[in-house]
């Protein structure tokens, strides 16, 4: 059990690193899909089977397919330019920032009190009950968010005729 978690975690980390360092967009996307699947495994191991399934179906499926479509629509990407943008210097600042953040949160987690962990299965039935009970307003808000998302995507995605620019 535990070893599975660590392997999945390692895969996620490596794949994610590759996502942000790769110069080929499609390759980067594939790495991201790998990372998402590994993450789904971790969700499963944490007892959230429903979340794991959704992670694969919606994230790994739907959202990534959207990305692929866009990459196709954009046409061949200038790989060389990508390379030229990725100078070592650009990595320094963000890395420092991220390392500090990592350190801070690591400290927080280490300093926090450690209760003996035996995780319980989250009840899937409970998820539905709570979702349509106390969180109903959140569901409504989510639906309200999705509708403008739909309209916005439709509106923004249109190719504007040359003369009207």
């Amino acid at each position: 059990m535990e070893i599975l978690f660590y392997i999945a975690a390692a895969v996620t980390l490596l794949a994610t690193v590759r996502v942000i360092t790769h110069v080929h967009a499609v390759h980067a996307l594939l790495y991201l899909v790998v990372a998402l699947i590994a993450l789904a495994l971790i969700f499963y191991l944490l007892g959230a089977q429903f979340a794991a399934a959704l992670e694969i179906i919606i994230y790994g499926g739907a959202i990534m397919v959207l990305f692929i479509f866009v990459v196709m629509l954009l046409g061949p990407l200038a790989v060389e330019q990508e390379k030229s943008w990725l100078t070592p210097g650009t990595w320094v600042g963000p890395n420092v920032l991220a390392l500090v953040l990592l350190g801070e949160v690591g400290y927080l987690i280490a300093a926090g009190d450690h209760l003996p962990i035996d995780f319980m299965e989250t009840r899937r039935k409970g998820v539905s009950i709570v979702l349509y009970g106390p969180y109903i307003i959140g569901v409504e808000l989510a639906s309200m968010l999705l509708l403008p998302g739909l309209i916005g995507a439709y509106h923004l995605g249109r190719r504007v005729p040359k003369e009207s620019r």
Binding site: T12, I20, A98, L101, F119
Partner: peptide
């Protein structure tokens, strides 16, 4: 395991942040 999952989460977050700021 959950503590380690949290560590993983913050690592992923930091990698994402690095990517966001450097690409």
């Amino acid at each position: 395991l959950t503590t380690h999952a949290l560590v993983l989460a913050i690592m992923l977050f930091c990698i994402g942040l690095v990517g966001l700021l450097s690409r």
